[in-house]
Amino acid sequence: MGTQTVFFREALNQAMVEEMERDPNVFLIGEEVGRYNGAYKVSLGMLDRFGPKRVVDSPISENGFTGLAVGAAMTGLRPIVEYMSFNFSLVAIDQIVSNAAKTLYMSGGQFSIPMVMRGPGGPAAQVAAQHSNVMDSIFAYFPGLKVVLPSTAYDAKGLLKSAIRDNNPVVFIENEMLYGLKQEIPEEEYTLPLGVGEVQVTGRDVTIVAYSRMAHMVRQMVPEFEKEGISMELVDPRTIKPLDIELIARSVAKTHRVVIVEEGHRFCGVGAGIADEIYARCFDDLDAPIARVTHTENPLPYAKGIEAASLPSPAAVMRAAKAALYRL
């Protein structure tokens, strides 16, 4: 088994390339995915490899090309839609919610929509309020969509391949801040199932549920937790819909304390839904109310200091973990 060291963005590129080699029905469409090789170079080299019929540069028209992809999927193709930023998917929200998510149901099971909508999402560095939306919970809210948010290059590749092969519309949100992460991954082909989470750090005192960049942030906190004498267990669900609640519940049954970390807002956030599932399954296992660390209730400011103050920080995670352990 050989290994290779790749950037997160390269892992995504490999996933798309492998799947397009494997299945001629798969194609990529989006703004600047072809000749510019992608705004974030995720589609680097793909136009040269697959030609303009399978790597399609679209006009600036998210509503148009998302609708096009839904139609293509209905006819049996497997489109990958790249949003230059997930903030722009809002322009196409009706296609995503009313068409992609509902067609299988409304056609009585006749038309499945095997498409992937992917691209960078979440707050980046000082891109201001309109380009820093966290929309995980919006997509996770609607039945009919799967929602995937990987936190490592290894997960990103394996999950994107599964997303492309899945017969349902999959929203695949890549955190822009993770694109530059390097990781050793297998050279051989592999896939990871959607809806299966992973215990990334094993511990016994407190379960931290985090995904995407937040899982990455919490992984970096392992030495800090060791210094505090707290044995932390990090569960990354990787897919927030369907959610691997069984994995989370097993961890909670062991630790009895939970902190949920997300970059999105508190009210109606993904963590609210996860907390509800935990309360329903694990009430008698909890020794403390579930603690949540979230984006503050404000549009994300441009200014660096208050941008940082608005987002979950390692200090806030540690504070929440101590609160859950009654150690504040």
Binding site: A309, P312, A316, A320, K322, A324
Partner: peptide, 15 residues
């Protein structure tokens, strides 16, 4: 109390 908002972090004070 656990203030779930990072707004209470010292970094916030000047701004």
């Amino acid at each position: 109390a656990p203030d779930p908002r990072p707004a209470a972090s010292p970094a916030l004070q000047p701004v």
